[in-house]
Design a protein around this nucleic acid. Sequence first.
RNA 1: GCGGUCGUGGCGAAGUGGUUAACGCACCGGAUUGUGGCUCCGGCAUACGUGGGUUCGAUCCCCACCGGUCGCCCCA
Length: 429
Amino acid sequence: MKLKAPRGTVDILPEQARKWQFVEEQIKNVCNRFHFEEIRTPLFEHTEVFQRGVGDSTDIVQKEMYTFDDRGGRSLTLRPEGTASVVRAFVENKLFGNPNQPVKLYYFAQMFRYERPQKGRMRQLNQFGVEVMGSADPAVDAEVIDLAMTIYKKLGLKSLKLVINSLGDNESRASHRQALVDHFTPVKDELCHDCQTRLTQNPLRILDCKTDKDHPAMKTAPSILDYLNEASKAYFDQVQDYLTMMDIDYVVDKNLVRGLDYYNHTAFEIMSEAEGFGAITTLTGGGRYNGLAEELGGPDTPGIGFGMGLERLIMALEAENVEMPIDRQLDCYLVAVGEDASKEAVRLVHELRMNGIQIDKDYQERKMKGQFKAADRLNAKYVLILGEDELEKQVVNVKEMATGEQAEIPITSLMENMQEKLLGGNEHA
RNA sequence: GCGGUCGUGGCGAAGUGGUUAACGCACCGGAUUGUGGCUCCGGCAUACGUGGGUUCGAUCCCCACCGGUCGCCCCA
C-alpha cells in the first residue's frame, strides 16, 4: 500500500462515525441545557498565540507544535489546544463588551501535537471543550466541572474519578514557587535532568514528575495548599462547597499540576478507572486561567475551561461496554428488474426522496436475488419491486421484509402509501 | 526522543530455503425463468511492508528502514 494516513492520524469510517455522531449529539444537548453556545475558531493561528498563551516553557510549545511558515513568511501553528485560540477570539472580537456576561462557549475541534502515538494519544485528536470568560465566581468553576460530569453521566460512564486542586492566585503561586526552589535546590544534583531544568523554568512541574516521585524530598515538598493566601483558599473552599452541594464526588490532589502555564486557582482532571483502558487515563483536563486574556492583549478577564478528548471518551465508552444506538437501517430499497424498469427506478427513487422517504437502490447490476440480499444486508424495512410486469401495470409491489407480506400498490398512490407507512402520514419533506 | 512487539488477499488466519502460498469470513453467480436471512455447488482477487545482503534459489535466514501496536516522558 503506497499512500497511508500520516502517522498518528486515523480515518473515522462510517461505522465508527455513527458513534461520534451520537456522542457529539449528546454533548451538544448538555451544552444547550447549560446554556453554552458554540464558537468555531481557525484550525491554525499565529504561532505567537500559543507561545504567549500556552507558555514557552511548556512541553507543548517546546516540542509538540506543528509550526510552519506560510508563503508570506508568517509563522503559523496548527492549534495544539483550544483555550488560547478561543481567548484570542474573545479578545479580538471584543466579546468582553457583550452585555451577556459571562460568555459561555463550547467547541468541537481537531488539535495537533507532534508526539509518538500510542493508545489514546494521536497526533491529530478531537476535543470538545468549553470556556467561560468574564466571571470569577467559584460557582462557575463548579458549573464547568458539573457540565463535564453531566456529559459523562448522560453517556453512561461510571468508572470516573474527579481530581481537583488549587494553584492559587499570583501571590500564592509566587510564594509557593519560592518555597519549592528553596526546598529542591539543596538536592538539585539528585533530581532527574528534566527536573533540574524545571527548577528554574517551572518548579511546580517537579511535583508530578514520575522519575523522581520516590525521592525523599518529594514527600516533604511544600504543598501549594499551604501557600494559598486567604483569598485563594476561600475561593477553593467555595468551589468545593458547590461541588458538594451538587453531589459531585471529588478528591483533592495537591500534586495535580496542569501542563500549561496559564492556569491558576482551580485545576482539575477527570480520569477513567475502567479496566483495560490503557496507560493513559485522563479524559478531561481543565482549570481557571485568569490573566490569559490580558496576556493576549485584552482587558483583564477571568476565565475557566476544559478540554475533553473525544477519542478517549469513546475508548472509555467502549471499555465500559456502553451501548450506543448506532444500528444502521434503511426505510426502503428499490429492486428493479429489466432495462426499462431500471430506468424508471431512477425517477421513482428521486421522487420518493423528494417526498421525505429514505430509499436506496442497486447500482451494481445485481440480479434480483442479489438485490434482495443487498436490501436484507442494509436492514431495509420495505422492498419496492419494480419489474416489467409492474411497469406494465403501473404498480409497485411493496414487500415488508420483517413479515414477508407483500402488496401491489399503484404508482399514483405509492407516495402517499409510503409516507403513511413510514412518516405517520402527516409529515412531509 | 527511548524501549518491547508485530507486519501474508477487503478482513481474519495457516505455512515452507525450492516448479500451483492452505483455510475461514466477506463478496458475486447457480441450485430456486422475478423475491432476503438456512443449505449445497461454483467463482473471485496485481497477498507475503520497503530496500539491501546470504544463497543455485527466499515469503521463510541476516541487516537497515518504514509502518502498526503497546509502554516511558507528557498530556486530551
